[in-house]
């Protein structure tokens, strides 16, 4: 059986909000090390890979592997019934067909319980080899989100160029063009505003901005984001969690 407790329901609410626009139904695999999810969006443009280590829970118990086949939007609907600071417990018996969620306020004088029906989902998995990327950029998650939002007013695509001078985001559409360039920098007072670039060769890739904007909904999970890119390959975009990560593999636009 699975029994996992979080001190604040907001932790799971934010994670589900970060992935729900891209995923419909998917399996969450639970074992003694934690919860993991790997799922492609319908169009096969983005893969979401979520890892929630058992250390990230205030209490965690999973004796035997459990697969939770869930509709992510149903999970989001139920989680809306929890207050952000409620204590949240996830429970599922072995071979059960439901996930039980309980929400308690800190004084434990209100306890809500919801049972979510589980499904058998025949899911596709992607084998992603360990990769050395040509460029790695660590930057503020909020700054990335803002930059992409600004450029989405111009075009449905953004081009990202990374070289030793910095990282440049640009877009061009009917009304004109725009770009934002960030130089590598170290901000001693606000470390999350630093921009760190590790590079073996310069990279330029273009991406659909609608999908990118869905990915950056994970900005509420982490102050920084790590972008990893190699020419002609999908990008890896990672938001670190206290014990785990939300990672996206994002297929680029390819020149004809």
């Amino acid at each position: 059986m699975l029994e996992a407790k979080l001190d604040a329901a907001s932790q799971l609410k934010k994670i589900v909000e970060a992935i729900r626009d891209m995923l419909g139904e998917c399996n969450i695999e639970c074992n003694e090390t934690g919860l993991a999810l790997q799922s492609l969006d319908k169009s096969h443009i983005v893969l979401v890979s979520l890892l929630l280590g058992s250390d990230g829970f205030s209490e965690y118990r999973c004796d035997r592997g459990v697969t939770l086949g869930l509709n992510i939007n149903s999970l989001a609907t139920v989680l809306r019934c929890a207050n952000n600071d409620d204590i949240l417990t996830l429970r599922s018996e072995d071979r059960a067909n439901e996930l039980i969620l309980t929400f308690e306020d800190s004084k434990a004088d209100r306890i809500s319980e919801f049972n979510l029906r589980l499904m058998d989902i025949d899911q596709e998995y992607l084998a992603i080899p360990e990769t050395e990327y040509a460029a790695t950029v660590v930057m503020s998650a909020a700054v990335l989100q803002r930059t992409l939002r600004d450029l989405s007013a111009l075009s449905e695509a953004v081009t990202i160029e990374i070289d030793k001078e910095g990282i440049r985001f640009s877009a061009e559409g009917d009304l004109g063009k725009g770009s934002t360039h960030f130089k590598p920098c170290v901000d001693m007072e606000n470390a999350e505003n630093s921009i760190n670039i590790t590079l073996s060769e310069p990279v330029s890739l273009s991406f659909n901005l609608q999908y990118f904007s869905n990915i950056t909904k994970a900005s509420s999970l982490s102050s920084t984001v790590t972008l990893q890119m190699t020419a002609g390959m999908p990008a890896q975009i990672e938001y670190k969690l206290p014990s785990g990560h939300v990672r996206y593999y994002f297929a680029p636009k390819i020149e004809d």
Binding site: I45, L126, A127, P234, Y249, A251
Partner: peptide, 14 residues
Amino acid sequence: QSNQSTLSSFFKIS
């Protein structure tokens, strides 16, 4: 002109 690629053209699906 650029086209959207899909992840299945880079990684193996199982």
